[in-house]
Nucleic acid binder design. Structure first.
Lengths: 377, 377
DNA sequence: GGCCAAACTGAATCGCAAT
DNA sequence: GATTGCGATTCAGTTTGGC
């Protein structure tokens, strides 16, 4: 039964009424609706819940790439809701069950995008969960914005909550610091999206699930906030990333998944999951944010304000800085690199070393400003 | 930071009743409560609203009581519900006024942290604002987490919304791309917090305001989403960062601030801000804004005479130019766009970049001819 | 097998003016 | 208000295929 159907024709609610309560089955996938299945589990029986609920994307028509290809968007029924109210009702219900089965010192993680995460965050607070952090997953390789109409949607948001303000939750501070080159782990994580060999494919060679999460994301979460032997529940199990990582890290897991096809995919995947070897560990490592500094950043920050005059080392060429970080020199305008190349008639040019600013009587390459900017951080 | 512990009994509301409506005063600070002051402004009079609302006791007026002793556990639940409700009521009210005074094609930006941004996001959606992006301000130099109990809270979140799904909002795509070294600007922005000389200090040498935002943040927002001469309203003006950057970028501003001390600080600050001159204000022009040149114009003018042979970049397809500016390729004929699309079997095609003419041994896109034509005018 | 170029892909709320 | 047609728009990474 898809969610849309459930919304359209309200069924008699199972809600908090526990039907045939059963003990917690470890390292197993329960095939069924997440609310109904959670309702059958005992109170306070899991140490962590990781949830990747439908985002309610509300996409319009087809979107085409500039070169003509069509974007394979999420168009599954499970992501469709009649209204924000319907989405809120659904969220409130599964959160209610999640809270009941979570141990008092357990924590819940929920991932989402701007389409749904504000609803989820509000309802978490309304249900008296206590937000510990919101975490930003900065994607190193997001899909671009093909129409040039908005900022590239390059991140997703995770909420990490305890059951209340006083809860003594697990946070493996040292492990996180070690994972981050002995610096405190921050609330923004740079990780690539799930692709390549890790992406589970069907017999047709196509992706088995439209929204599979990278194992590195779950790895960090489970390492940070659970102990070995803890039980992690994932009510929207999909291809079983949570189960696979839990098994690798020696945590117990319970998955709930409505779609029989996904259940089979996840079961096969977890069955073939091996303990972490070193090469796998390497791929888990944080891809450090490149210390790239766009010239525009120096313009915004006032180190090189609009109107600044740039010259090359021999003062043969000059250009002026514009408000958006582009530069202008006679008929040429564009990036520091492009304009430098055009003026020299060269195929390319490193604008950072080509352009200089006056520094008293001497010239200083703008690369020096970049170094100052970097060292100021 | 317990929002929940800061409640007082709800007060009688002024709400939407407009008292002494007045015309919009430009480049001015209105000293008063933001809801009451907005209520006196005309409908649909500003192009953008930037809001940095309070999430703790200081600025909530009568809705909040000062931070006091601990609240009993028993009272906590009641307080909690009340407090969130009070914050929601306050947010709903100022958003209602904001929506009213915002032009139909204007946009609103709101910044917050995990304490309040989920409430704000939900209420924006409930008020039928249409989220365009959520932006993560990734702080390059955040305050560390001293107790080692959570991830370092290293970001804040901004929401950018139009009044509805169909609104034709301003987004200076090219300027943003230029600012980011010719790559699309993403939804995660790395910027340092406001410190050093930029941080406004009082006579006592201490920071004048606890949450002063960096000018670089406002610079990017105003450059991205407003045009020169647009009016930007900031209902929580503080030290006037929005006004200072607006003045620098040639935008009009209106600030609302309750605290007389901040009003004075902001007035002095903006008074000493120098606007950019026009040449420095220039940004990369959006092609979409350039005057249209029909292909037929190039045919008429002799730049691309009838009979000219056009080929695509890989010389897989060719076509010939006809006297009326249409082109012909085998069975296909029509506009440069239609024929290009038909030959590729694509839903659409930009003929300007698809088709090329021989230029010696190299190929030149016909878009280059159009540029020549434009610059000749 | 190795190398290089071309093709493909990812949770996406993705136009607008003239008729 | 609906339809038509111009024509603007992509980044990082993996896989495939040719030589």
């Amino acid at each position: 039964m898809n969610l849309l159907a459930r919304v359209a024709e309200p069924q008699p609610r199972v809600r908090t009424r526990k039907v045939e309560p059963r003990s917690l089955p470890l390292d197993t996938i329960l095939n069924g609706d997440c609310i109904a299945e959670m309702a059958r589990l005992p109170d306070k029986c899991v140490d962590m819940i990781f949830a990747d609920p439908p985002y309610n994307l509300q996409l319009g028509g087809d979107l085409f790439r500039p070169e003509g290809g069509r974007v394979d968007a999420v168009d599954d029924d499970w992501d469709k809701f009649d209204s924000l109210t319907a989405y809120d009702d659904f969220t409130r219900e599964w959160l209610e069950q999640a809270r009941r089965i979570l141990k008092d010192d357990g924590t819940i993680w929920v991932i989402g995008s701007y389409h749904n995460i504000y609803r989820v965050g509000t309802l978490l607070q309304d249900a008296e969960f206590w937000i510990l952090n919101d975490i930003v997953w900065r994607k190193s390789n997001p899909m671009p914005n093909f129409r040039g109409t908005r900022f590239t949607n390059a991140h997703e948001t995770l909420l990490w909550c305890a059951k209340d303000e006083k809860a003594r939750y697990t946070f493996n501070y040292r492990a996180m610091k070690a994972l981050n080159d002995d610096l405190q782990m921050r609330s923004d994580w740079v990780l690539p999206i799930c692709s390549g060999a890790e992406r589970v494919k069907g017999d047709d060679g196509l992706k088995a699930h439209p929204t599979q999460k990278p194992e590195a994301l779950l790895y960090r979460i489970l390492l940070a906030c659970t102990k070995p032997g803890d039980v992690v529940l994932d009510p929207f199990f999909g291809t079983g990333t949570t189960g696979a990582v839990a098994r690798r890290l020696g945590r117990h897991w319970v998955g709930i998944e409505r779609d029989r096809g996904y259940v089979k995919v996840a079961r096969d995947r977890i069955g073939s999951t091996l303990p972490l070897d070193e090469s796998a560990m390497a791929t888990m490592a944080d891809k450090r944010a490149a210390p790239r500094v766009a010239f525009g950043l120096l313009v915004e920050s006032g180190m090189c304000p609009p109107g600044t005059r740039l010259v090359d080392a021999k003062r043969r060429f000059s250009a002026s800085v514009r408000a958006d970080g582009s530069v202008e020199s006679g008929a040429h305008s564009g990036s520091i690199h492009k304009v430098g190349a055009a003026l020299q008639g060269a195929p390319s040019c490193n604008g950072w070393t080509f352009w200089h600013v006056e520094d008293g009587k001497a010239l200083q390459p703008i690369d020096a400003l970049r170094q100052q900017h970097l060292s100021a951080l």
